[in-house]
Design a protein around this nucleic acid. Sequence first.
DNA 1: TTGTAAGCGTTATCAA
DNA 2: TTGATAACGCTTACAA
Lengths: 350, 350
Amino acid sequence: MPERERGRRLTIADVAKHAGVSKGAVSFALNGRPGVAPATRQRILEVAEELGWTPSQAARGLSVKRAFALGLVIARDPVLLGSDPFFPAFIAGVETVMAERSHSLVLQVVRDAEEEAEGYRRLARDRRVDGVFLTDLRRRDPRLKLLDDLAIPAVTLNVPDEESPHPAARLDHEPGIAQAVDHLVAQGHTNLAHVAGPEEYVHGHGRREAFQKALERHGLPPGRVEAADFTAAGGREATQRLLNTTERPTAIVYANDLMAIAGMNVAQQLGIDVPGELSVTGYDDTELAAHIHPGLTTVRTNVFAWGQVAAHMLVSLVEGNVVADVELEPPELVVRGSTSTPSTRKGQRT
Amino acid sequence: MPERERGRRLTIADVAKHAGVSKGAVSFALNGRPGVAPATRQRILEVAEELGWTPSQAARGLSVKRAFALGLVIARDPVLLGSDPFFPAFIAGVETVMAERSHSLVLQVVRDAEEEAEGYRRLARDRRVDGVFLTDLRRRDPRLKLLDDLAIPAVTLNVPDEESPHPAARLDHEPGIAQAVDHLVAQGHTNLAHVAGPEEYVHGHGRREAFQKALERHGLPPGRVEAADFTAAGGREATQRLLNTTERPTAIVYANDLMAIAGMNVAQQLGIDVPGELSVTGYDDTELAAHIHPGLTTVRTNVFAWGQVAAHMLVSLVEGNVVADVELEPPELVVRGSTSTPSTRKGQRT
DNA sequence: TTGTAAGCGTTATCAA
DNA sequence: TTGATAACGCTTACAA
């Protein structure tokens, strides 16, 4: 027998030898399965603890055909991604449940849809992950079929616009936008506009629909909608288009904070007082929202909880359980200084 | 022989059988090693391609004792993390080099230093990663020793303040801050202040030092420094403290954009014209910087490239090579509307 | 140049 | 209840 090298990795065999049992017994003891006497189990666990041994995930995975990892592929321009508060909070939430189950998160950041598909394929082929999160759902999202073909379990964030075999962690946009509109209407606004996210995204589209639906509920005619792309630049331009009209709105509901902040700046730059002549609302409640002037009235969602729920679902799913959709608490409107009663509109035809 | 199940995973044995060779030959062919005839190699690769087979990373890893994954542990309040443009861009950069080498990135987001240490320990114990990135370096960072104890290869982002066994991917703060100060001094400012990040961070401390050093270089007395924490709230408060003095500065150099934007808003709220009565500069060049009014003069760093370089270094390191520090291109000052010649200072004693 | 067989560190199976 | 022993899918000596 070769002399044991000093730096050699500790294996289950070492633990077994020290405890005077077989490898199988150690495995059983560690995984808390019946078939090992309480006293023996206790001793085994003590030895493992003492030696500081933990099973190798690679070996474990090879045996049980699991990776003990979940995947997240993010397709977005890195620059834009940097100003999106969603992912960090989501990942942090995911993390809390994965950590306690010794799972880990494999992350990929790619630039476009093509690379994205390739990313999922790689994850599946290499058996790097047991399941994936599907975020930034698009309308008629091709990834639904792709993941089905790859036979890789998935949980979607919110509900796809077509039949989906994957369970969804739902946090509806509708109530948030509805609250924003309600708030503005209650203050006396009747001429509202919406700066929307891209129509191709389920959430972009959904918030737009929610906006119109809310107006309709109040008996107001459809509001003007300017399509944008969730970027500051896009929000800026959309706002300029909205404000360069004779019958300009007294309130703008933005699909996210970034566009709202950029838009608010445009208005101020044009000499339009916020909220005196123009009320604005955002969506996300980013950190800056509370610290600009005036503070941004916006919709706060619990993204952290969303991550936790989605992770729970996905872990359960990959363990072979049937998982139903889970609905999260509706978002909450945070009222700050950017919204108020519409003024006498002295500036309307400026 | 049992009938082959339909959904069974493709293995190297299948490829070997189809190609009429041994498993070993397939392995050699795939990993591009000598010892297999060109024609045979060609045939093997074709069969693999045709069957769509890729080696299982778990099995491969078990054999070669590698995880083919790199780790990143981020310790930060998720809320704050959401407004930090650094990580997404960094990760995107890392990703580009990992993808082409079939490595993957394991990410952990934790709340504090304690959880962070635990995260590294878990990663090491489970052999989940072959190496880690060390970001957000702190002064006298205890992780340096921890990683050394865990015997896990690491690359640090920038240079620790004490002896470090790990190679560093360097992107100095100094030139960026120096450029900002130079720019302001060139415009005639002599009373500059700095809103700093936390002293405990190497970059917080470093930018502060760089600020004073730049003033000294211009023969100016040390500037006033207000400590903050990189958050909008912190930037806001620090700015208030700076502006509530009789001899208030004509220019403020912020350690990041978030604080700068919040600070600019404070000034405007107090009726102080930016840049007329107060010039401000940021650091990061976040998306919003270009889309607020006035546009924020700020320091742009190529974080994406930083990620690429760090990933290259770490991959090389875990492959057993000796890796030297690498220095990235210095950051660049982006001049926008928030800086200008100091006015006659009519508002000084307001 | 090719095939055979022995690891890698688990879990699972099956006698004892 | 226990302890060999065989997978798991790959890499890699070593033999042919």
